[in-house]
């Protein structure tokens, strides 16, 4: 018999996502080459780098929207791009994604947006879906906005709404593209807390694209730094350590290592 609360999960350890020799390009235009990194189970993994260095593009390669021009992406021990389409679909169903622009469906209300994944992939009835939706909306601080259409909400609200949609199915891996961009500081801190909370309670692996310095240091325990000039990664590891001791001055600078001390 398992003991009470302490081991409510069989905690998985080890690599969850493995990226090897990944090169990505739009046509002939190479964005990043030779990326190698590992995201472990339960990591909050930060993808950072200057604007336009290819963070969103990397995310699209990870979630199966864009085929890498070279290299592999592994989930546990399945090579995503080498698997049959059927299996790719199954893997993708374990993801939750928050897009940079929110991407709420404009013809559906907020509640319908969050409820759609539940409708499609669970057997819950309409009343149960409503309850789950309300709970998720309460988590992101949008309780009471169920009947709003995306066009009637502010940019930050849309962002939080799409976060609620991303976590609707309690996915195994969450991908967030700039979750706190466009939020006020308290909301942004709350977003960070929520991300930490989701990881701690549901043991979700979370990949976050962000360049909010506070956020990076508060939530990240592992990271990769993409450089726009050399078109490859120039650092990886715990952001707090990189800030102190990365050999790359650019990385230390980005993480505020000079200014603060």
């Amino acid at each position: 018999m398992l003991a009470a609360s302490a081991t409510q999960y069989m905690e998985k350890a080890g690599a969850h996502i493995t990226v090897s020799d990944l090169t990505m390009a739009y046509g002939d235009f190479v964005i990043q080459r030779d990326l190698n990194f590992t995201v472990n189970h339960g990591d909050i993994f930060i993808i950072m780098g200057g604007s336009g260095c290819g963070k969103t593009t990397l995310l699209k390669n990870l979630i199966g929207l864009k085929i890498p021009s070279k290299g592999d992406v592994w989930f546990d021990n399945i090579n995503f791009w080498k698997s049959p389409e059927q299996q790719q679909e199954e893997i993708k169903r374990r993801f939750g994604v928050l897009f940079q622009g929110g991407a709420l469906w404009s013809s559906l209300t907020l509640a319908e947006n969050v409820g759609l994944p539940l409708e499609e992939y669970t057997d819950l009835g309409p009343a149960e879906i409503r309850e789950v939706v309300s709970f998720k909306l309460a988590l992101v601080g949008l309780a009471g906005y169920e009947e709003f259409y995306p066009s009637e909400m502010s940019g930050g609200m849309r962002k939080r709404g799409s976060l609620a949609r991303a976590i609707a199915l309690d996915p195994e891996i969450l991908f967030f593209d700039e979750p706190s961009a466009g939020l006020d500081p308290p909301s942004s801190r709350r977003m960070d807390e929520l991300i930490l909370e989701i990881r701690d309670s549901l043991k979700t692996t979370i990949v976050v694209v962000t360049h909010e310095l506070d956020s990076i240091l508060r939530i990240g325990n592992n990271s990769v730094f993409l450089d726009a000039e050399t078109r490859t990664m120039i650092a990886s590891g715990d952001p707090k350590q990189l800030r102190e001791s990365s050999p790359e001055p650019g990385v230390r600078d980005f993480l505020g290592g000079h200014a603060r001390e």
């Binding site: 309460a138 949008l142 309780a143 009471g144 906005y145 807390e193 929520l194």
Partner: peptide, 10 residues
């Protein structure tokens, strides 16, 4: 967390 922000009364 879910209770920390009261529901908007619209």
């Amino acid at each position: 967390m879910a209770r920390s922000i009261p529901a908007a009364t619209l």
